[in-house]
Write a protein that binds this DNA or RNA. Structure first.
Length: 340
DNA sequence: ATGACCACCTGCGAGC
DNA sequence: TGCTCGCAGGTGGTCA
C-alpha cells in the first residue's frame, strides 16, 4: 500500500524513535511476517537480540535498520580499509533535515546535503529489511498498549523508554527479513531496486535512455522498481495527470524534455505528499505513532472517477488496468493512437 | 532477455 | 441478515 512518501514518513519515525536502541527480545506472532528466513521466526529473533539498531535507511519502498555489533561473536568483519566508527547517537540527537535523503555511495559526486553521514556503515554487516506490502505498518507503541488485531512481530528494547516496535500487517504481503549488506551499502536482496527520484544520485539521463530502450508504456515503466523505485499506483496516476500523459503512452518515443517534465512531476507530487505526512485513505496507512497523512485531500486523479478534472472540468475516468485501476482525465490525457 | 500476468492474503462495501 | 462479488497503497515467480 504505501509508496515512497509514506515509507519515508515511517523511516523518519523509526530514526527518531528506534535508531540507537538495543534489541532485548523479539516475538514473531505470524510465520509469514518473517520473510526468506529458512531457520524460522525464532532464529530470526535470536539473531536480532542484543544488537543496536542503526540509522533507518530507505530505497524506494524498502527500508532497513542496520544492526551494529556490540562485540558478540558471529559477525562479518568490517570491509577492509573502512575504519569502524560509532553509528548512532541517542535518538534525541538524531537530526534530519531534508526531503532528499542520501543513502550510500560516499565516494560519489560531493553533493551531499545532509549533515549526517549516513552511508555505508562499516560496523553494520547485517540489517533488518522491511517492506510494508499493501497493508503493513511499523508502529512504536507503549508496551502496555493492547495488541493490534493483526500484530505480527513485536520487538522490545533494553532501555527504560517503555515503548516497543510493532509490525502490524492485515494482508501479510509485507514482512521483515534479515540480510547481509552488500559492498554498496544495500541489503543484498534489493540490489535490483533502482534509486528513487528523491535520491540525489538518481540519474535522470540513464532513466531517459532506459525508457527509450524499453518497449513498454509509461505507467508500466513508472511502476517498474528496477527503472525507478518508490512510485506506486497512486503517485503514478498523479504524476501522469500532472504531465498530461495517458498511462498507455509508449515510452519509446519520449524526448528528453518530456522525460524531464515527467520526472519533475513525480518529484513534485512526492515532495508535496511528504510535506503533509503522506496519503491515508483509512487506518491502513499511518506513521509510527499511528497518525494518518493528509495528502488524500490533494489528490488530482487517484480515486476521482466521475468527479470533474481540476484542470478542464471533464469527468475523470477509471479503467481496469493490470488487475488494478488507472484514473485519468479523458481530455487532458489523450490515449495514444494505437492501443494494443 | 524482456515483457505481461497472477498468486499471495484479509477485509470492506455494494448489491442481491 | 447474510451471501457473493469486486476492489484495495505491491512484488516475485512464471509464462510466452
Amino acid at each position: 500500500m504505501p509508496e515512497l512518501p509514506e515509507v519515508e514518513v515511517v523511516r523518519r519515525g523509526l530514526e527518531r524513535w528506534v535508531s540507537g536502541r538495543i534489541v532485548a527480545d523479539v516475538q514473531v506472532l505470524h510465520p509469514r511476517a518473517v520473510r526468506r528466513h529458512i531457520a524460522g521466526g525464532e532464529d530470526f529473533g535470536a539473531r536480532l537480540k542484543g544488537h543496536r539498531i542503526g540509522l533507518a535507511q530507505r530505497r524506494g519502498k524498502y527500508l532497513w535498520l542496520p544492526l551494529s555489533d556490540l562485540g558478540e561473536a558471529g559477525h562479518v568483519p568490517a570491509p577492509p580499509g573502512t575504519a569502524p566508527r560509532p553509528v548512532v547517537a541517542a535518538p534525541e540527537y538524531v537530526q534530519y533535515e531534508g526531503a532528499a535523503p542520501s543513502h550510500d555511495a560516499p565516494h560519489g559526486p560531493t553533493r551531499e546535503r545532509t549533515p549526517l553521514r549516513r552511508g555505508r556503515s562499516a560496523d553494520s554487516p547485517s540489517a533488518v529489511l522491511a517492506h510494508l506490502g499493501m497493508s503493513g505498518q511499523l508502529l512504536v507503541q507503549p508496551q502496555d498498549a493492547p495488541d493490534e488485531k493483526h500484530l505480527r512481530i513485536r520487538v522490545r528494547f533494553s532501555d527504560a523508554l517503555n515503548t516497543e516496535l510493532r509490525f502490524v500487517d492485515q494482508r501479510t504481503f509485507g514482512g521483515l527479513s534479515l540480510h547481509e549488506m552488500s559492498p554498496d551499502g544495500l541489503p543484498d536482496v534489493i540490489a535490483h531496486i533502482a534509486r528513487d527520484p528523491l535520491d540525489p544520485l538518481f540519474d535522470d539521463d540513464a532513466f531517459h535512455e532506459a525508457l527509450r530502450r524499453r518497449r513498454t508504456t509509461v505507467k508500466r515503466a513508472l511502476l517498474d522498481q528496477s527503472l525507478i523505485s518508490g512510485v506506486g499506483n497512486i503517485y503514478a496516476d498523479e504524476a501522469l495527470w500532472r504531465a498530461r500523459l495517458h498511462y498507455e503512452r509508449p515510452t519509446t518515443g519520449f524526448t528528453r524534455p518530456r522525460t524531464a517534465e515527467l520526472l519533475g512531476h513525480v518529484r513534485d507530487v512526492m515532495n508535496a505528499a511528504l510535506a503533509v505526512g503522506g496519503t491515508s485513505f483509512d487506518s491502513l496507512y499511518v506513521n509510527v505513532n499511528g497518525e494518518s497523512g493528509y495528502f488524500d485531500r490533494s489528490l488530482d486523479a487517484y480515486g476521482r472517477e466521475g468527479e470533474p478534472c481540476r484542470r478542464c472540468g471533464t469527468l475523470m475516468r477509471r479503467r481496469p488496468w493490470m488487475n488494478r485501476s488507472s484514473y485519468f482525465c479523458p481530455r487532458c490525457q489523450r490515449p495514444p493512437r494505437v492501443t494494443s
